[in-house]
Computed example of a mutant assay.
Amino acid sequence: MSKHEPTVAHLTLVPTPIGNLQDLTFRAVDVLRSVDTILAEDTRNAQKLLRHFDIQRPLQSYHAHNEHTQVNKLIARMQQGERMALISDAGTPAISDPGFLLVRACVQAGLQVECLPGATAFVPALVQSGLPCDRFVFEGFLPHKKGRQTRLQELAGETRTIVLYESPHRLLKTLQQLKEHFGGERPIAVVREISKLFAETIRGTIDSVLTHYAEGGTIKGEFVLVIGGLEKEKNKQAAML
């Protein structure tokens, strides 16, 4: 490594753009150019990003289906001095993406871990929602089947702003379930395609937003749902019932 290249940890988690490629930071580019290996959720997607920034480093696949079998091998290589960067398809690794198992194993092995600041979908969605963002709870994706109803019941009494991720084919179902558990008047902002050409934010009540999408609103891309917390007075009343 030359004196002009950045000193990197054994493992560096590098956030990648969620839309506009220019959202990748200068520091992220420097790290990706200096590591020995880049671990990528999908090497095909990673190649597009690396070509755009003229980054030529070895790529290795690391995703939800192989992480359990790869962790110990990767730890051994880092213990021998190899420096690695981990990227997901979009956003910050380990936030609803693979990464936690490798980070935990590095920490347990005494290896240095660093996560660069950068793109993640829920922060801009929360901030631009118009809902309180001083206190919030990030839930990622709700369980698809087992535990889903229980989790919705628990969240219905949450007083902090709630942030969820959702896919297009489950959006209407989720909005309908939110109405059933939270009530149709709860405020919500549905944000899709953050940082992309057709980025869009639909704000209103759960009822109005559900109507918007049921009547032909665009259901494409990845969604972030930002839901207002239960008002404290209503929470008190519910506790007394």
Rank of each mutant, 00 (worst) to 15 (best):
K3N: 15
V31I: 06
A121V: 03
V14S: 01
A199C: 13
V103R: 07
F141R: 09
G130A: 07
R104W: 06
G184N: 05
E158A: 08
S195R: 12
V35Y: 00
E233I: 11
E193R: 14
L11D: 02
I206E: 00
A105G: 04
S34M: 09
F223L: 13
P132G: 10
L197S: 12
A238H: 10
T120A: 07
D89S: 13
P93E: 15
I55Q: 08
H169W: 02
Q47F: 13
A94E: 06
I188L: 15
L152W: 02
E82P: 11
I18A: 04
V137A: 15
A90Q: 08
K146G: 06
I18T: 13
V163E: 15
T69V: 11
G217M: 07
L172N: 01
R148I: 07
T12A: 01
H212W: 03
T25Y: 07
D30R: 15
P168A: 03
P117D: 08
V14D: 00
L126P: 06
T92F: 00
L210A: 11
A214N: 10
I202L: 08
K220E: 07
C115I: 08
K146D: 08
E5H: 14
N45Y: 06
L13S: 02
L225Y: 04
V123Q: 11
E200S: 08
F198A: 12
K179C: 09
S167C: 10
L24N: 03
T218L: 12
L152H: 02
K179H: 10
E231N: 11
D36Q: 09
F223E: 04
A40N: 01
R192I: 04
L11N: 04
E200H: 09
T218W: 07
P93W: 05
A125R: 00
R57L: 05
D89H: 06
L111M: 06
L175E: 02
L172Q: 03
F182T: 06
E231C: 09
L172G: 03
L164K: 05
M1Y: 14
T37E: 12
I18R: 06
V35E: 00
Q128E: 15
V113Q: 04
G91T: 10
T201D: 09
P132S: 07
E193S: 11
T218F: 10
G229F: 03
L32A: 11
H63Q: 09
V71E: 04
T120M: 08
R104H: 14
L126S: 11
V35H: 01
G183K: 03
Y213R: 04
E180G: 09
H144L: 10
H169Q: 09
K220Y: 05
